[in-house]
């Protein structure tokens, strides 16, 4: 402290405040009034938190008309700071011409930064609202296409949010 340890108050306390007891009682009143306010606890296993659209949960691949939007450009894998994404592209007869033969996200590595979502030109990989991730081994934590693909109806909220704010 530069002022030689002396306390500096913006304004001197009045005598009423320096008696201290009325101020304590005021504080007690505030404390007691809190008792009747609504509780903010969520009792987890019974009640669950529904995150807003802006929430970045686990990344998922959008599935439209039974097939993923992803064209296996590899940008997400390139931008991923944690090197969690692995993509192997291949050719297809569909209009999009390319599709990911293998798409794996190592959920132990993922840091939920959302860069993959930001960089994706097809809006194919997006952050979902799911936050409950449990695995019992390293192998189990590597999510393949089977776990990543999510029908578009389930992620409408997020897509709308992205259209609005990006």
């Amino acid at each position: 402290m530069s002022n030689n340890g002396k306390m500096i108050r913006k304004k001197d306390l009045t005598l009423w405040e320096r008696i201290y007891i009325p101020e304590i009682l005021k504080g007690v009143g505030l404390t007691i009034s809190q008792i009747f306010k609504p509780k903010s606890t969520i009792q987890y296993p019974e009640e669950r938190f529904t995150p807003p659209a802006s929430f970045r949960g686990r990344p998922v691949l959008v599935e439209e008309n039974g097939v993923e939007r992803c064209v296996a450009c590899g940008l997400c894998s390139r931008v991923c700071p944690a090197l969690a994404i692995e993509v192997q592209g291949s050719e297809t007869d569909l209009e999009k011409e390319r599709f990911p033969e293998k798409f794996e996200i190592n959920m132990v590595r993922c840091i939920f930064c959302g860069f993959c979502e930001e960089v994706c030109p097809e809006e194919a990989i997006i952050m979902s609202q799911e936050y409950e991730l449990v695995f019992q081994s390293q192998e189990e934590a590597v999510f393949g296409k089977d776990k990543l693909l999510v029908p578009i109806e389930k992620v409408r909220d997020r897509l709308e949010f992205l259209h609005e704010h990006r």
Binding site: Q34, I35, K39, T41, Q43
Partner: peptide, 10 residues
Amino acid sequence: RISAFIQNRI
């Protein structure tokens, strides 16, 4: 319990 109520917990 009371302290929880005061802090808006259960």
